[in-house]
Computed example of a mutant assay.
Amino acid sequence: MVPLGVAFGVFVTHSGLDWWWASAFSALIYAGSFEFLLVGLTTALVPLTTVALTAFLVNIRHVFYALSFPLHRVQRLLGKAYGTFGLTDEAYALTTSEQARSWSGRRILCLQAFLHVYWAGSATAGALLGSLIPDSVTGLDFALTALFTVLALDAVGARRGDLSTPALALVSALAARLLLPGQLLPVAFALFSAGLLARHFAARRKPRHA
C-alpha cells in the first residue's frame, strides 16, 4: 500500500491539483481505485451524477464483502461504523483468512486503522515529493491498473478450471469499448455485474441430477 500510495500522491500533484488533495482523498474517501479515477474526474469537472455513478459501480463489490466480513466481532457502534468505512480489499483478504478466525474485534479495527494510516500517509508523502519528480516520468496513473492486473492473473491461476469469469470480464470490457468508449469503466462494470448475476440465477435454476 505504501508504494501505491506514494504513486497516487505524485499522480495528484502531476495532475495539477494541490498536494493536500491527496491527503483529503486518501483520508476521507479511502477507496484506492476510485481515488485514481476521481483525480481525472475532478480535473475534467465532470457532473456530480457521473462521479456518483462511477463511485457506485467501482465500489459495489463491497456489498458482497460485507456478507462475510467479521463485523459481528466488533462491539461498539462507533467501531462498527469505522469497520464498515475501512473495509478495503486488503482488509477483507486478511480478516477473512483461516488465520484470522480467532481475531478479536479490536485486532480487526487496529489492522484497518494501520492500513488507513499507511495509505493516507504514503499518499501525502508522495504528493509532497511530487514536485521533486520531473513531469517526464509518466505511467503513475497506471500503477493501480498494473496491481489489479497482477491480482487478476494470480486469481485466474488459482482457479484454472474457471475460465468463464475472466471471459465474461473481457467480453464486458470489449462491449463497453464498442458501445460507449467515453464511459468504458462504468459500462463495463455494469455489464460484468449483470453477467455475474445472470450466471448465478441460471446456475440455481439448473435441475440437479441424482
Rank of each mutant, 00 (worst) to 15 (best):
V2N: 02
V2E: 03
P3Y: 01
V6E: 14
A7M: 03
A7C: 09
F11K: 00
V12E: 00
T13V: 10
H14P: 02
S15Q: 06
G16D: 03
G16M: 03
L17G: 07
W20A: 07
W21N: 02
A22V: 12
I29Y: 00
Y30P: 10
Y30A: 12
Y30Q: 05
S33P: 01
F34Y: 04
L38P: 01
L38N: 04
L38E: 03
T42I: 08
T43I: 13
A44P: 06
T50D: 11
V51F: 04
V58W: 02
V58N: 07
I60L: 13
I60V: 10
F69Y: 14
L71R: 10
L71E: 12
L71V: 15
V74G: 04
L77F: 04
L78N: 09
G79D: 11
A81S: 12
D89R: 06
D89M: 05
A91G: 06
Y92I: 05
A93R: 05
L94Q: 13
L94S: 12
T95A: 15
T96K: 13
S97E: 08
E98F: 08
Q99S: 08
W103M: 07
G105D: 12
R106D: 14
R107K: 09
L109T: 05
C110R: 07
L111H: 05
F114M: 15
L115A: 14
L115K: 04
V117P: 02
Y118S: 10
A120S: 15
A120E: 13
A120T: 15
A123Q: 03
G126T: 02
A127G: 10
G130V: 00
G130L: 01
S131Y: 06
S131T: 10
L132I: 00
T145Y: 03
A146L: 13
T149S: 12
T149P: 06
L151F: 15
A152C: 14
L153I: 06
G157W: 05
R159G: 05
R159M: 07
G161H: 09
D162T: 10
D162E: 11
L163S: 06
A167C: 01
L168A: 10
L168K: 04
S172Q: 11
A175G: 04
L180Q: 11
G182P: 04
L185E: 11
V187R: 07
V187T: 09
V187W: 09
A190M: 11
S193P: 00
G195S: 03
H200P: 01
F201S: 08
R205Q: 13
K206T: 09
